[in-house]
């Protein structure tokens, strides 16, 4: 079980506040969706948790330790941007990753790549956008960190790739021990996969709830809720 907490966290880019006074403890395990309009602070939130950036004030901790450059063993971050080397093959990408990330499960990476029907001899340069996304996810999941931060893994993907990506997460995430944070605008598609939802609006967390409980008490979809809280 992993305890991820933010205490009074504010993050600024220049003068602009990306996140304001965020105070929360995340669920210990399962899948949590982070939704909100563009520019609301979703990516900033994930980067803070994986220790890629630091807050101006307040603290982000994983199991009591402040996140930072050494958080790689606890939290993996899947970037929305290109994060693979073009000149490597799929197989080489796996070998490279296993050299870079402590605890990288090479065997799992090979299995995931095979499940997604990627050819290990193909160069990253020649992969379709969908296949690049699949490879990125495989490499991230194979790190087997207690916390996975997936930044827009579905964005710009066709429906079949989106289905594939969600299937991979459901099949290989250890929902009883790992916590997976996913940001996405594909709210309707993501909803059945979520245990928990956070809605970010203007740098503030405006909703922090269990999804089943939300439906039981309010009988509405996440999109309805998003519409209500972001007006």
């Amino acid at each position: 079980m992993t305890n991820v907490s933010c205490s009074n966290v504010t993050k600024k880019y220049g003068r602009k506040e990306a996140l304001r006074e965020v105070d929360l403890t995340l669920p210990e395990n399962g899948i949590a969706g982070i939704i909100g309009p563009n520019g609301s602070g979703k990516s900033t939130f994930l980067k803070l948790i994986s220790g890629l950036i630091r807050p101006e004030s307040g603290t982000v901790t994983i199991n009591g330790t402040e996140t930072g450059r050494k958080s790689g063993a606890e939290a993996a971050y899947l970037s929305e941007e290109d994060s693979l080397y073009d000149f490597m093959t799929v197989g080489k990408t796996i070998a490279f990753s296993s050299g870079v990330y402590p605890g990288f499960d090479r065997e799992l990476a090979h299995t995931l790549v095979e499940e997604m029907k990627l050819d290990e001899n193909d160069k990253v340069k020649h992969l379709s956008r969908g296949n690049k996304a699949r490879l990125k996810l495989a490499v991230t999941m194979a790190r087997k960190t207690p916390v996975l931060c997936l930044d827009e893994p579905l964005s710009g993907m066709d429906p079949l790739v989106r289905e594939d990506i969600l299937r991979l997460i459901v099949t290989h995430l250890d929902v009883e021990h790992q916590l997976c944070l996913i940001t996405s605008h594909e709210v309707k598609e993501l909803e059945p996969f979520l245990d928990h939802v956070l809605i970010i609006h203007d740098g503030r967390i405006v909703v922090d709830r269990n999804v089943e409980e939300l439906k039981e008490t309010e009988r509405k979809s996440l999109i309805d809720l998003l519409r209500e809280v972001t007006v």
Binding site: G30, I31, E163, L166, R167, V170, T171, L173, V175, P192, F193, L194, D195, E212
Partner: peptide, 17 residues
């Protein structure tokens, strides 16, 4: 649980419940 989660397109915790 996991197979049902993949088949139904839902979270494994939901299937357990």
């Amino acid at each position: 649980v996991r197979v049902m989660a993949v088949e139904a397109g839902v979270n494994p915790n939901t299937v357990s419940r």
